[in-house]
Design a protein around this nucleic acid. Structure first.
Lengths: 206, 206, 206, 206
DNA sequence: GATGAATGAGCGTTCATTCAT
DNA sequence: CATGAATGAACGCTCATTCAT
């Protein structure tokens, strides 16, 4: 967690630092990201950085928390009503929320992507240790419930399917940020719809 | 491309260097990989390294080419008979070839995974510039032909589907290397089969 | 010397700061001691520190003075009656006073020890420049008088013997703090007695 | 231990680096000593330093080893004949050897002195861990044997006396390097002689 | 008088690359 | 052709001190 000094900073300066940091971590992996560059671009002294943050890791972990919380505000409505919807509706909502999130904060999405790439580095372990909610676990649970409700064929390999659903989520995001114009539009939602159908055909009970 | 001196090296020494390099790039991202460590583990002089390779990048790009070629030997039989098979059969063969490849050369697969994580870093651009044959392009072409042959519904978004098929390929590999025992087995092939079915239901003409 | 602001501080706060500083200098050498840590532990603002003290050196020099004065209150009774006692009695009293002092203020003793280790560093020079009363000078004087009174053989090397007596004083203290339980006891006084005898045999006139 | 590269250096350059390092560690404590200053004064690149030594610690430990070995060549003749001499003769020889050593290598003596001052720092622990032969242990053993041979009164506190003998050794060295001209002379040996006598009177059996 | 943000030099260390032999 | 010493920029981080409020 950043030190108090950081939160005492004038809003503008704090945002400036955060923005520069987000840029840096969106452009480089955690290991490659440079505190030197951050302070230079942010126009602050090196010493100041360490008056705001305990370490590079401190800043990064904080960023991840901010991103996580931001993402949760997108997912919360869906997750709250999770029991009212059938599995495939849930899935569509989660995908859509993810896409809306990535539309709003493309840099955050980029950082998330970079992070997935740094699996099996120490920083990733640390994140998992403190944060837990790895996406595929959510899907595992959803699948479990869906099977019990008879919405999904009970003979599927839950782990694998959850892994794939999580991965497709990421892939859709990636594709969206790479190829489509930056604005959230109907087209991508149609695509999501089609994929849900595809999955329904594949693993649904009927 | 490595310099001539590298190719003049005795086979054994050349392999030794390549093996060490593969280890290093399988364990670290491109940026994190260290020439220092490579020469140390390979037991060659630092100067020698730069007599074989123009730079770290040179070595890495060469490695990517070797890996690519190796992978092609796995795909070649399938690609050669591509016109005899329908799209979904092709797909199954390609997936299976990929899994066989990853089983045989897990380190290569690891490097590939690491690389996907460094998209939009300079080195990745360079790779695309020199190498082109990004997987999704292959799938685009296959999809194109399949549509013309009436195997696939013509209203799909080719780019997106190709992207997803490529991504699922990677995901299966990832899942396979993370969760399944190291030996190539029937189980994973069954999964592939199911996914092909799933896709057939989703995008096939019927 | 601390600035006036420091002495205007409420007694309690002033003591708190001094105590923290003593801890820091007892745990670290002068160079290693950190103003950052001091202000943090003392719960004062960084700026405040520099309103109380001109510099880290200022604080340290002041501390040394405080310690010196404190030690003097232990030695004063002895020094006042110095002419009534013979040399060896004086010596015993001085040693005993030193041990009592170290028993009472082990942190002070620790700082003293650390300081002796940093002889010939700039800070030590400065101390000598301002403070002078190095222990061995006291012993030189005592020896001088003792020779004139015929208590000690006139052919000894006064400088050397004074140096050694001072050093033994320190050594006894060190040994005491390292090996003996923290309470002032008879045992160490017996040892002092023995050493006095030893010296008496060695340099006394009879 | 320094790397091979260091020992491959031309004699002159190696000595130059060692001399600069000795100067640095004789002037500063281990913690305060600066690799930056060393490379600057030695006229080598910072990177070169780390091609010679694994770390600052590596250099320091090596220096301690060199000093230790050098000191051993002074002590060896005495230690070999330790059983032929009585305790006080041994002591005189050891003191004299120490003084001869300090005369020859005053910088080494200075480093040793600095080190004693950094007791209870991590580097000291490390040294003790690898080197063991703390001086006072040697004296403890000598005292033990001397008591068994009836040369010394059995009622003394061995630990304390050993500690003091070791300390006096250091003190003599210190005094010698601070006050006397740099050449080894008779005067100091006379003083040693007197101290031995003093001890003989104090703790000898007769 | 109190605050604490700002500063930049300095720390030990690693790096990819060059080049004289 | 092989060698490995040399290089200096860059890394994350700590420091004592200043100064505007």
């Amino acid at each position: 967690m950043p030190k108090e000094t950081f939160f005492n900073l004038p809003e503008e300066k704090r945002q400036q630092i955060l923005n520069v940091a987000i840029d840096e971590f969106a452009t480089n992996t955690y290991a490659q990201a440079s505190v030197n560059r951050i302070v230079e671009k942010a126009g602050i002294a090196k010493g100041s950085f360490y008056q705001y943050f305990k370490s590079k890791k401190d800043l990064f972990l904080y960023l991840m928390q901010v991103i996580g919380e931001e993402k949760m505000t997108y997912l919360a409505p869906t997750l709250q009503n999770i029991h009212q919807y059938d599995f495939f509706t849930c899935l569509r909502e989660i995908y859509a929320a993810g896409i809306r999130f990535a539309t709003q904060y493309p840099k955050y999405a980029e950082i998330g992507k970079k992070l997935l790439a740094s699996k099996d580095t120490p920083i990733f372990e640390e994140l998992v240790d403190q944060n837990l909610p790895v996406a595929s676990q959510l899907f595992q649970e959803l699948l479990h419930q869906a099977i019990q409700r008879g919405e999904i064929r009970p003979d599927i390999d839950i782990n694998l399917i959850a892994y794939l659903i999580a991965s497709i989520n990421t892939t859709l995001l990636e594709y969206y940020t790479e190829n489509i114009n930056q604005e959230f539009d109907e087209k991508i939602l149609n695509t999501v719809e089609k994929f849900i159908d595809l999955l329904r055909n594949g693993i649904g009970t009927k």
